[in-house]
Each structure stands twice: as structure tokens, then as C-alpha cells.
């Protein structure tokens, strides 16, 4: 009797989950099948989900545009730099906030958090001018720095919470052994913080991967565009070429998805201790 009810419980749960997933992924399903349709089938008065004639034409066009792989690579580089530097910088800051004793700590934590509250739309023009003065316009560096400042508050705060959960004896022992703070961070704290580091990595990578507003202003030349901006050049300005758009969105989702699926265990572990355990 008991095992029976457990089975039904599981079944109901699974069915519910399947329905929800279907509904939530409907836009993605449409995107996937649209990308496999020939142009004439994309916009019709009687839309059908499945293509009448399967074709890889959109993907072929996409990869025949020599800019597309470059846009992908640019996005990848920018996101990677953002993620790696985020980890380094935020772990340093988080370490100081947890293991060092100084006045004004609380204020600093708050101040970092408050940077989220300034509307990004107003940052655009001043940031553009500033990058000009510093000769950073049209460089990936400008983008990396911008994204860094958006990802840091969350990353610092998350690593800080994770570090707080590390047994103090561990750090204490290292310090007694004569480690410097820096050694302590790299040899003791970071190795046991892989989950949190993964979480920070995913968060800051995703942030850089799909950002639109700043990439659109700070990058000028075609060779430096990221995929979120490059998309627009590909699909046109006077109408939306849904075939190309969906094909491109599928191509750009896949690598991130694969990456996430591989590290998701760590990612969630990192969130477990980092953000929600007290």
C-alpha cells in the first residue's frame, strides 16, 4: 500500500513536471522547428509546429556568413574573461570580507549591493564617453570591465556566504603554519570552494553571453561584435528573418547548455552553501 502511493506520487509529479516543461519550452520548441523550415513556411496564416519540408538551409546560410563564427568566438572570449576575472577578483574581496578584521565591513558589503540599483540605461552614454577618453571603445576589455562590475556584487556576496561556511579550524591551521592570506586563499579556501566557484563561473558567463545594451554601444566594428549584437545584423532591420534568428539562437544556446549540464551538480551545491544556508 505504502509503496503504491509512493509510485503514484512520483508519477503525478513527473506528469506535472512534463506538462510544465512542455509549456515553458514551447517557445524553444517553436524555435527549433522553425530553424528547420524553408523560408516560405516560416510565416503562414496556418502555422504548423513541424516543418513540411525539413531543411538545414538556415544553418547552412548561417555558417556561410563568415561573421557568424566570429561573433560566437567574441562572445565566448568576453564571457570567459568575465567569468575568470570575476572569480579571481570576487574571491579576493570575499576573502577579505570574511577572514580579515577591519572597520566598515558592513558598509562595504552594502555599498557593493547598491550598485545594482542604478538604472543601466543611464550608464550607457557616460560610460561610452568615458571609454572614449580611455581609448577603450571598441575593445573587448571595455565589455569585460562592464560585465565584471555587473557580476561582481552577486559573486562577492555568494563567495562570501560560502567562505563563511568553511570550518574556521581549516583557515586557522593554515595561518598558524605561516601561510600568508594569499596562500591561504589559493591553497586552502579555493580548493574546498569548487561548488561556489562553479556557481560564480556560470552566473558571470551567462551574464556576458547574452548582454545586449552595452555590447551594442561599446562595440563599434564588426570584428568585435558579440553574438547578441551580431544577431541583429544577421536577421535584418526591416523585418525579422525568423529562420535565421531561430537557427542562430539554437546554435548559441547549445554550448552554454552543454556547459551547464556538465557542471550543474557543482553549481547547485555552490548555491546550496553559498546563497541559502545560514
Amino acid at each position: 500500500m505504502k509503496s503504491n502511493s509512493g509510485f503514484w506520487n512520483k508519477a503525478i509529479r513527473l506528469v506535472l513536471l512534463m506538462i510544465l516543461t512542455y509549456v515553458l519550452l514551447f517557445p524553444m520548441t517553436v524555435a527549433l522547428f522553425t530553424s528547420l523550415k524553408p523560408p516560405g513556411e516560416v510565416i503562414t496564416a496556418t502555422p504548423s509546429l513541424l516543418p513540411h519540408d525539413f531543411t538545414l538551409q538556415n544553418y547552412r546560410v548561417l555558417f556561410s556568413l563568415r561573421e557568424f563564427p566570429r561573433y560566437l568566438l567574441n562572445s565566448f572570449l568576453v564571457s570567459c574573461y568575465t567569468a575568470l576575472i570575476s572569480i579571481l577578483v570576487s574571491s579576493l574581496a570575499a576573502y577579505a570580507l570574511v577572514w580579515m578584521n577591519f572597520t566598515g565591513k558592513r558598509t562595504i558589503v552594502k555599498a557593493i549591493f547598491f550598485t545594482y540599483m542604478f538604472p543601466q540605461i543611464l550608464l550607457v552614454l557616460p560610460l561610452f564617453l568615458m571609454c572614449y577618453e580611455l581609448n577603450l571603445i571598441d575593445t573587448k576589455m571595455a565589455l569585460v570591465l562592464t560585465y565584471l562590475s555587473f557580476s561582481l556584487p552577486f559573486c562577492v556576496w555568494m563567495l562570501k556566504s560560502f567562505f563563511e561556511s568553511i570550518p574556521e579550524e581549516l583557515v586557522e591551521a593554515a595561518m598558524l603554519d605561516g601561510c600568508t592570506y594569499l596562500q591561504c586563499l589559493f591553497k586552502v579556501v579555493l580548493p574546498v570552494s569548487i561548488p561556489a566557484v562553479t556557481a560564480v563561473l556560470v552566473f558571470s558567463f551567462v551574464l556576458g553571453w547574452s548582454e545586449y545594451l552595452f555590447a551594442n554601444t561599446l562595440i563599434i566594428s564588426d570584428t568585435n561584435r558579440t553574438i547578441a549584437i551580431g544577431l541583429q545584423t544577421l536577421i535584418g532591420y526591416y523585418r525579422v528573418d525568423y529562420g535565421l534568428l531561430t537557427a542562430a539562437s539554437i546554435v548559441m544556446t547549445l554550448p552554454v547548455l552543454l556547459f551547464f549540464v556538465t557542471v550543474q551538480k557543482y553549481f547547485i551545491q555552490g548555491l546550496v552553501v553559498g546563497s541559502v544556508k545560514e
Binding site: 572614449y132 541583429q232 532591420y237
Partner: peptide, 20 residues
């Protein structure tokens, strides 16, 4: 050196150029 701009922000961008 040919750059295709985006209609969304081309004037903003040019304003930035003028200012800088």
C-alpha cells in the same frame, strides 16, 4: 573600414562621437 550600425542606437553613437 565599413561598419554597419544598428538603427537602435546609431544616433546615440554618433552623439558620442561628436562629444568625444
Amino acid at each position: 573600414n565599413f561598419t554597419v550600425e544598428s538603427w537602435d542606437n546609431v544616433y546615440t553613437k554618433w552623439d558620442g562621437y561628436f562629444a568625444s
